[in-house]
Amino acid sequence: MFRRHPVLSIVTLLYLGVVGYITLGPQPPVGGKNGIVMQVLRILWEHPVTDWVTYNGVEFTANILMFLPIGLFFLLLFGRRRWWLAVLLPFLMTVSIETAQIWIPGRVSDIRDVISNTIGAVVGVLLGLALTAPRARRARRARAEARA
């Protein structure tokens, strides 16, 4: 894996390090009512078209977006045949993160994070499968022609 895709392997490890720091590192000071997220939400709540946006929805979506690259990177590293591994590993990572957060002061373990992170990994895997489909079809055709 590392020999086949050294740059992707390094990028994946760096990204996993960032995710680890974000999810297990020191909790950043919360902006509270004056934080940038709340300021943006207040602006959205002023308009009927966007007043449905909630803090929980933003957090859920952010978790999906954070794990989408992990699913994509793992699919590219492990290959299309092992797509299930690119879903299983992020799920297990998330369960481990949420379990560890139980003992980290200021952190809250939440089953919604497991759900949103896994959804993000699945979306990343599906994106990777879609992006690699043309090449996989060409390789399949070439193998079939070689046998014939």
Rank of each mutant, 00 (worst) to 15 (best):
R143E: 15
E145T: 04
L85T: 10
G31A: 08
L44T: 03
P105V: 06
V40N: 09
P90C: 02
E98D: 13
V40L: 15
G106L: 08
V19H: 09
L75I: 01
R81S: 14
I102Q: 15
I111F: 09
R135L: 10
T12H: 05
H5Q: 13
R82E: 15
G120T: 06
P105Q: 14
L68H: 02
I36C: 07
R140V: 06
R140S: 14
R141N: 11
G32K: 11
F67D: 12
T99G: 06
W83P: 00
D113H: 00
W84T: 05
R42L: 04
G32I: 02
V40Y: 08
H47W: 05
A121N: 09
N56C: 02
V58L: 14
F74V: 01
Y21K: 06
W84S: 09
R112F: 05
R143P: 09
I36H: 12
V7L: 12
Y21F: 11
D113Y: 01
K33D: 14
L127Q: 06
V49D: 13
L85Y: 11
P69T: 02
P48Q: 03
V49H: 06
V125L: 10
A100G: 07
A121K: 04
R80K: 10
T50R: 03
L89D: 09
G32F: 09
V49G: 05
V18S: 07
L129T: 03
L77C: 08
P6F: 01
I10L: 15
I104R: 06
T61K: 00
R4E: 14
R3T: 06
Q39G: 07
Y55I: 02
T12R: 00
M1C: 09
L129K: 01
V125T: 07
P29Y: 00
I10M: 13
E98K: 06
M93D: 12
R112H: 12
A100I: 05
L72E: 04
R137T: 08
H5P: 07
F91E: 04
F91A: 14
R147L: 15
P48N: 04
E59K: 01
A133S: 14
D51K: 06
A148Q: 15
V40R: 05
F67C: 03
I115V: 14
W103E: 14
V37R: 14
I102S: 11
F60S: 11
N117H: 06
V53G: 12
V87C: 15
D51P: 00
A148E: 14
R140K: 08
L75S: 09
G106M: 11
I22K: 06
G31T: 04
P29T: 03
M93T: 05
T99S: 15
R140F: 10
M38T: 09
F74H: 02
T23E: 15
G79N: 11
G20P: 03
V30M: 13
V122P: 13
I104M: 10
A144E: 15
V95P: 13
V53D: 11
D113E: 08
G71T: 01
L76R: 05
W52N: 12
L24Y: 03
R112P: 09
R42D: 15
R137W: 13
L65M: 12
V18C: 08
D51G: 05
F67R: 00
T12E: 11
I111E: 13
R3L: 06
I111L: 15
R147G: 04
D110H: 00
I119W: 08
G79W: 00
T118F: 01
G35F: 02
N117K: 05
A133R: 09
L14Q: 06
G17W: 00
E59Y: 00
A121P: 07
